[in-house]
Design a protein around this nucleic acid. Structure first.
Length: 437
RNA sequence: GCCCUUAUCGUCUAGCGGUUAGGACGUCGGAUUCUCAUUCCGAAAACCGGGGUUCGAUUCCCCGUAGGGGUGCCA
């Protein structure tokens, strides 16, 4: 069996689109599944808009998603260079071949390829047999001398010995052009696999750069877990077939087959992504969660290098089971690091019936009398207060939570008190008394 | 317009001639919990329409319809 060689060949437009990321992912999955080679090639033939930053966006997006390439920039360079802008000599050589076969001609300064006029059969691993006939000759070199996508794409696939062309369905119609070129070069035609497109979540058409959430960098900025996004992307057009959805990439690699990829377009569903992301977050080892969380809080300026690391880790460790995304982490823990937290009016209203001033004073006295301050003792205190005054523990819990955090939701109550510390809790409780006056 | 292509709950999907059409997200109930989040039960929710083929079509074929893509000296 031939060695599988696939490639991701993005054009550096300044963005890594979510659809492009999925194309890269499916190439990568297939390469890893088959033990083949994943090549990264940069199609920067449109000199006007290609920049170094635009190329970097592609590299960083792929790296963030964990899609490592075996061949290409920063990797093995067996058939390099991997930037089309640097492959001019190769294209000239291939053009000469077509010239000598009499398959090209010049017109208006551009170079045209002569089509055969015959229908081309495309054997697509996902879509089956597709037949299409080209109607007119097409340009392969512009009048400014630069080569056109269809030409360089095919030349490079031949030159880099690509065996499987896995790309978006938007290229399906173009494929008849490409097959004509492969034949003109008397080259072996690779297997094709055209993946359906990702449609925008709301409205018509495929997702475009302008749509919110269309760019990989958006998810990185919003602190999604790359493994979660990757898992979600796998599920757009492919399914394990056993009713599991959240599963390690190694499992997906084992199961991934091109023939199982769906033919229908998929609509992006951020809610489902959020769900998968939260599952990854919850099942993450706690030290890893704390580590990542620490860095995010640092990034956001919520803490500084001077902040007690152990305190931060204590906070994060009691929040892991509650927080649904790193995006909301900052807001979720901000009051731990500031005495100036806001008091939520709605939450305050609801506490009125608990006689909050009385409850707070009782707890203050109770805590001041404590010789040892830790979770179990705190629980004993609250339970005994509740019993003594014949009210539910909730009277104290809700009131105190609000007093020390300004809100009605947060981590498990006794853990919260314990992490915040005796001194801090007491001063917050005293301050909160004013809120109810 | 022409060409290519697709069609199962709102969304992602399983199904590959005979099923009570399964799962997940979301939604709505209920239970558990100190709040929230989990977790656990439960509910509503789909085979685009019309013709064939067949004993029997969600499944195969044809025609519509709707969606997507292409139709550049963009990629």
């Amino acid at each position: 069996m031939e060695d599988v060689r696939v490639r991701f060949a993005p054009s550096p437009t300044g963005f890594l689109h979510i659809g492009g990321a999925r194309t890269a992912l499916f190439n990568w999955l297939y390469a890893r599944h088959s033990g083949g080679t994943f090549v990264l090639r940069i199609e920067d033939t449109d000199a006007g808009r290609d920049t170094q930053e635009a190329v970097d966006v592609i590299f960083s997006g792929l790296r963030w998603l964990g899609l490592d390439w075996d061949e290409g920039p920063f990797a093995r360079e067996k058939f390099g260079p991997y930037f089309q802008s640097k492959r001019g000599e190769i294209y000239k050589k291939y053009l000469a071949k077509l010239r000598s076969s009499g398959l090209v001609y010049d017109k208006d300064g551009a170079i045209y390829f002569k089509i055969s006029g015959k229908p081309q059969v495309i054997n697509d691993l996902i879509r089956g047999t597709v037949t299409r006939k080209e109607e007119k000759d097409f340009v392969i070199f512009r009048s400014d001398g630069s080569p056109v996508f269809h030409f360089v794409n095919v030349v490079d696939d031949i030159d880099m010995q690509i065996t499987h062309v896995i790309r978006g369905e938007d290229h399906l119609s173009n494929t008849s052009k490409h097959v004509e070129l492969f034949k003109a070069f008397d080259a072996k035609i690779p297997h094709f696999a055209h993946i359906s497109l990702i449609l925008k979540e709301h409205g018509q058409g495929k997702m475009s750069k302008r749509d919110t959430g269309a760019l990989v960098e958006d998810y990185e900025k919003r602190k999604f877990l790359p493994a979660a996004l990757r898992n979600y992307l796998c599920l757009l057009g492919w399914a394990p077939g056993n009713d599991t959805e959240v599963l390690p990439i190694e499992e997906i690699i084992k199961m991934f087959e091109l023939k199982d990829v769906n033919k229908t377009n998929a609509r992006f569903d951020e809610k489902k992504l959020a769900h998968i992301n939260s599952e990854y977050l919850r099942s993450m080892p706690m030290d890893e969660f704390c580590d990542l969380g620490f860095r995010i809080l640092l990034d956001q300026g919520i803490i500084t290098q001077a902040t007690d690391r152990e305190y931060v880790f204590d906070i994060l460790s009691i929040c892991q089971e509650k927080v649904r995304s790193f995006e909301e982490l900052t807001n979720f823990v901000s009051y731990f690091f500031s005495e100036d937290y806001e008091f939520d009016d709605v939450a305050k209203e609801k506490l009125a019936k608990f006689d909050p001033v009385k409850r707070i004073n009782e707890v203050i006295n109770g805590i001041m009398d404590m010789t040892e301050y830790y979770q179990e003792k705190l629980e004993e205190l609250i339970v005994s207060l509740a019993n003594f005054h014949h009210v539910k523990t909730g009277y104290y819990i809700h009131t105190v939570r609000f007093a020390i955090s300004g809100r009605s939701v947060g981590p498990s109550f006794y853990r919260l008190l314990s992490v915040l510390g005796k001194k801090n809790v007491l001063s917050r409780l005293k301050k909160a008394l004013n809120v109810f006056r």
